[in-house]
């Protein structure tokens, strides 16, 4: 082991270079967000927190956060109600269906948002349907692959079929047995799936912006507009957004490592 330690400078150098490269724009954005003026100079003219005040005082800021939150919560609920039972059924009762669901992983790459929104505009563009409902269903559908994959691991190992059926023998209804016996045993995997779904819905831009013609101003749409009107406030928003993603990434890692530990025990 000691012999290998000596040679670690190479991987360390590679990772350091990649990390510096990836983080440099974010660090620059942070300094921009606390600069009085930073245009065409190497260093900012002075430091200030006033842009943080400017952003939070903007009457459009909080409503756009709330709109993104509502959208994400709606998508999470649809995912729970529509997808979770089917994924349970495929994993526990129907391996053939599971085999078919595997093909979902191709979906996000062959039908990216810009392609899907074209179909949405064509189909629902001139029809009097509540577009926000369609949007919620569409975002749920594109979140399915990630949700499905994070749940698959959760169903491995335990005898869910036995648990589910015994609970019913003891007098539970199907829904009751599912909620009381199955859900607690897939908690970690379910949380990972829901968190990924939440984050994807919260940060969705292309479909929301084009399909609803920018009228439902989510956080990302607000960010784009702000970027073109007040760069300093937009840099504050970018930093807040980065921290938000960071918190989600931290929770995800915590959940996944707990799940791994639980499986090992």
């Amino acid at each position: 082991m000691k012999v290998q330690r000596v040679n670690k400078w190479r991987p360390q150098l590679v990772i350091t270079l990649i990390a510096i490269f990836l983080l440099a724009p974010i660090v620059a954005t942070f300094f921009y967000s606390i600069s009085t003026v930073w245009v065409k100079t190497i260093l900012p003219n002075g430091l200030t927190f006033k842009w943080y005040g400017v952003l939070t005082a903007d009457p459009n800021f909080i409503p756009s956060v709330i709109r993104s939150l509502l959208l994400a919560i709606a998508v999470v609920i649809v995912t729970m109600v529509a997808f979770l039972p089917v994924i349970f059924y495929a994993n526990v009762y129907n391996p053939k269906l599971k085999e078919k669901l595997r093909y979902l992983s191709i979906l996000p790459y062959s039908i990216p948002g810009i392609v899907l929104v074209t179909g949405l505009v064509q189909l629902y563009g001139n029809v009097a349907v509540p577009k926000i409902i369609i949007l919620i269903l569409t975002i749920s559908a594109i979140c399915l692959p990630a949700f499905y994959q994070s749940l698959n691991n959760a169903f491995m190992g335990d005898d869910f079929r036995g648990m589910f059926e015994q609970a019913q023998l003891l007098g539970d209804s199907k829904v009751g047995a599912f909620i009381r016996v199955v859900l607690p045993n897939i908690r970690a995997g379910l949380m990972v799936g829901l968190l990924l779904t939440f984050a994807a819905a919260f940060t969705e831009y292309v479909i929301t912006n084009i399909f609803l013609t920018g009228q439902y101003q989510t956080l990302k749409i607000y960010m784009y507009r702000l970027m073109n009107t007040n760069g300093n406030a937009a840099s504050v928003l970018t930093i807040i957004f980065f921290l938000f993603l960071g918190v989600i990434a931290l929770i995800l890692i915590k959940l996944v490592s707990n799940q791994k530990r639980a499986k090992k025990e």
Binding site: P25, T29, Y32, Y205, K220, M223, A234, S235, L245, L252
Partner: peptide
């Protein structure tokens, strides 16, 4: 790296414009 991958899009573009 998870974080960096999810930073794509408008926030990334804006950071790059600043630099």
């Amino acid at each position: 790296f998870n974080l960096a991958a999810s930073f794509a899009g408008i926030p990334l573009a804006f950071s790059l414009i600043i630099v």
